[in-house]
Amino acid sequence: MNIIEITGLSKVYDANTMPVYALNGVDLAFQQGEFTCIVGPSGSGKTTMLNMLGGLDSPSSGKIMIDNTDITGLTSRQLINFRLRNIGFVFQSFNLIPVLTARENVEFIMQLQGVNKDQRDQRTLELLDSVGLNDKINTRPNKLSGGQQQRVAVARALASKPKFILADEPTANLDSKSAEILLEIMEKLNREEKITFIFSTHDSRVVAKARRVVTLEDGKILSDVSSTRPGS
């Protein structure tokens, strides 16, 4: 079942003077439970694609249907609410709230959703446990390593029970060991809980774990390769 369907998606900058196509008529679909990498050289349109999927940027033309909702037709306010309830984000530079502990960072999203305290507490502990940080729940980001911060970010992205998680270069600021641990956690969550992950990355370690690799070049899909891996 497709949870995301992209049709004729284009993003043009300087449309009137010297048009530059960040995305050029992309058609793509993602299914529930995918572990997909979007790769390509710098300027190929990976980040633009992720921004569009996350409702952070609007396309020049085309449609993005997420769970039967065309998000290109939503107002800015509706988009914020849509993101809160349907999309999880993991950023390259972690972007945790520095004044909050790991537990509060995860809980914060559920508070925005209006989840009650008991459910929040239970889910926060489960999520931090699932990313292997149950001993750091009351630690602030500045006392955590980069890898640990990114694991908190993954737990935060999962907190809202999103339909999918967008991860923009999640391992770019991590050492190899931390990146390995993070990827194993995300792969496990995908395998066991059918969480859909869509990455934009240059990192070959991430690509090696992906079961589908979409390659972009000059705003177009160059290739879309799926592989069946053990445990999928």
Partner: peptide, 11 residues
């Protein structure tokens, strides 16, 4: 980031 993850502008 706060707006990206769903914090409304009014918040």
């Amino acid at each position: 980031m706060l707006m990206a993850v769903g914090m409304s502008k009014s918040r």
